[in-house]
């Protein structure tokens, strides 16, 4: 065809490879590096997610609140924490400088799941919500060297949303095995040995804490869950933002989780009197009970 023949007269600096090859070869190198980084981040994010889930699974065996995680449970957690540490160290250099936010959507899942595990453990040990700064420094305490990993407020918040589900599971299991809602195991004052600054603040005004053990309404996980629900619902996120989109997805699940605990407690109160100690309706039964009555 004639267009083939006239190709060399096309007014472009054609070479035998075509006129744009050298620019595209530069692009290829850059894009290959970018894809390699992105794939490393995606893989690390998946591994962090899997390890965090295993940590959460072990933490769910905890029965006491406001105390350090028991040694046997801690022993099962540690290898997974080491794995998370290795994953974060492996990709830390991919998340620096210009690239600090470039792979945000790829690492976000891992960050969120790790926040869920971290905040759940923090809650079990302190019966308090882990502050954002503490979460940031906990994450970066895993990273060796001077580089830091960015943890966005968004990922922290979304992790907290998911943590509500873990608190729900923790409540249901505890209610099934002990017949009551988990609550502070000892008066707040005795927690002063705790080294975390946060709990110091909580110890200051403790007038209401003395009779805590006797009153089921106070200091139990359900009242914490309700506070958390109110605080999460009250967050005012920017319209049309990624965060708004994510929060919308998680809000309903979070609310359902709180309600499941409430329904369980209802079942416990209604049926508790006629059942032997330790018996506990499961969630579905609590729902059926409610629908019927």
């Amino acid at each position: 065809m004639s267009n083939k023949r006239s190709r060399d007269e096309a007014g472009m600096d054609s070479t035998s490879d075509g006129p744009f090859q050298s620019m595209f070869e530069t692009f290829r190198v850059e894009l290959d590096e970018h894809h390699a980084r992105r794939e490393r981040v995606i893989k690390a994010s998946r591994d962090v997610t899997a390890a965090s889930k295993k940590i959460i699974f072990s933490l769910q065996r905890t029965r006491e609140l406001d105390q350090p995680i028991s040694p046997p449970i801690k022993k099962t957690i540690d290898p997974h924490l080491d794995n998370i540490k290795a994953q974060y160290n492996g990709i830390c250099s991919d998340l620096q400088g210009l690239n600090a936010y470039r792979y945000q959507s790829n690492i976000s899942g891992g960050h969120q799941e790790f926040m869920e595990a971290l905040s759940f453990q923090y809650y079990l040990e302190n019966q308090a919500l882990i502050p954002y700064e503490t979460a940031v420094s906990s994450l970066n305490s895993l990273v060796e060297g001077a580089n830091k990993i960015t943890l966005t407020v968004d990922d922290y918040i979304l992790g907290i949303f998911d943590m509500v589900g873990e608190l729900m599971r923790f409540c249901i299991t505890a209610m099934a095995s002990t017949g009551k809602l988990p609550a502070r195991s000892k008066p707040r004052r005795s927690t002063s040995k705790n080294t975390l600054q946060h709990s110091d603040r909580m110890d200051v005004d403790d007038g209401a804490g003395d009779d805590v053990g006797d009153n089921e309404q106070e200091g139990n996980v359900l009242s914490d869950l309700r506070q958390l629900r109110v605080a999460l619902e009250a967050l005012d996120v920017p319209r049309k933002s990624w965060l708004e989109n994510q929060v919308r997805k998680k809000m309903g699940v979070m609310q359902t989780c709180v309600e499941k605990v409430e329904k369980s407690l209802y079942g416990l109160v209604v049926r508790g009197a006629e059942r032997p100690t330790g018996w506990m309706p499961d969630i579905n039964e609590a729902e059926r009970l409610e629908n019927r009555g």
Binding site: Q127, L129, A208, Q217, E218, S223, A231
Partner: peptide, 8 residues
């Protein structure tokens, strides 16, 4: 009236 989980 209870100091709980959520530090405002």
């Amino acid at each position: 009236s209870v100091k709980g989980l959520v530090d405002p």
